[in-house]
Design a protein around this nucleic acid. Structure first.
Length: 119
DNA sequence: CTCCTGACTCAGC
DNA sequence: GGCTGAGCCAGGA
């Protein structure tokens, strides 16, 4: 019981993405593929990013700054209010960012499938 | 209604 | 080992 059972079958594919992203612990980061794979659309990793675009209208706000690409690079920083906002937010949480890339990305990588232990 | 783009990822060369 | 092409789904023009 107690486990934060993430309902895979949300009303919208986007909400599923939002829920997972919002569950990302502070100081941690994840990749689009991890989220997509968790939802079951690994091949549609692009849609995860697309959902993020709508996340700006979602509430509560989705910490999209914790979501980076497979290389740990802040690919979506340009979509934030400011191109430095994403990097600044990550640094504010203790995540070091260098050259638009998350340092120790492999250590800070947060996999919903593993942390949430849901399948 | 059709075409294109897009915050990704994998496979092939 | 770096780059290109193709696949995925959805929304906008």
């Amino acid at each position: 019981m107690g486990k934060t059972a993430l309902p895979h079958r949300n009303d919208s594919f986007f909400e599923s993405v939002y829920d997972v992203v919002r569950l990302i612990p502070k100081g941690r980061v994840t990749s689009f593929g991890a989220i997509a794979a968790y939802i079951g659309t690994r091949l549609s990793a692009r849609m995860v990013g697309w959902a993020m675009n709508s996340a700006g209208s979602a509430f509560p706000p989705v910490p999209a700054h914790r979501v980076v690409n497979r290389n740990g690079m802040l690919t979506g920083k340009h979509h934030f209010a400011t191109p430095t906002l994403m990097e600044d937010l990550l640094k504010s949480e203790g995540v070091k960012v260098k050259n638009d890339t998350v340092v120790n990305f492999d250590k800070l990588f947060w996999d919903p499938s593993l942390e949430l232990e849901i399948e």
